[in-house]
Design a protein around this nucleic acid. Structure first.
Lengths: 114, 114
DNA sequence: AAAGTCGCTACAATAAATGTAGCAACTCAT
DNA sequence: ATGAGTTGCTACATTTATTGTAGCGACTTT
């Protein structure tokens, strides 16, 4: 019996196939998930500061995403606010190179203003 | 004047900040976008085979995602079906390591069946 | 005690994803 | 050339997600 794609806020247990990469993509493919991890990479942040750093994210969605990321062991709610766990920092190492890649990409495809 | 977050199917021009990484995250943070790129990494595929490889994606969403990815220069609709562009393959190089990472992660956090 | 902050919830409105049906164009064997 | 099968994709109703705004209770600062 394959696992189901969970609804927002519910624990992420797996995509239908249950393949880890698809579970991960299911988690990261939700609005603001990648942006939250990116923002937390520079250090712990409060709920409010995350909210303002993530452009227009609503408190409802921010809370939902943080809950999911906590349940997946990527984020933790510590004394100094929300922060990446060891695993979260580890994940960020793989995400970081996308920062420079995105710049050359946006240059090539003219998708951004800057 | 900052760019707006585009609606599904509309050209991805930028997040509100216009930062390339946020534009990229806006694109990749849509359902099935990452999965589609992952699936296409092994070679060109037809619409129908992509559909069955991407678990439960509906033709509506698949078409929308492919359109967005084409407009962003990551996917192209060639003779042998949909395939990654040079840029798309380049992006995949950064995504690929997440495959092995996701396995150790799922082991550690008990999120998947396998 | 008044005035801020903070994390977060409620809730209505809008947007996105799903699931199903099916159509027009094409292939291919008869 | 006709009918059966496949393909890419659209239509559309239903379900789910996200947004945007307001505001509450706990806390801190003055």
């Amino acid at each position: 019996m394959p696992a189901q794609i969970p609804k927002a806020g519910e624990p992420v247990r797996g995509s239908k196939s249950g393949k880890p990469i698809m579970v991960l993509f299911d988690l990261l493919g939700r609005r603001w998930a990648l942006g939250i991890i990116w923002n937390l990479s520079s250090g712990p942040q409060t709920f409010r500061s995350l909210q303002s750093n993530c452009e227009s994210v609503s408190p409802t969605v921010l809370n939902t995403r943080l809950k999911e990321l906590r349940e997946c062991g990527i984020v933790i709610n510590g004394d100094s606010g929300y922060e990446l766990t060891t695993e979260g920092k580890d994940l960020f190492v793989y995400l970081e190179p996308l920062g420079t890649w995105s710049q050359t990409w946006s240059h090539a495809s003219n998708l951004t203003e800057q």
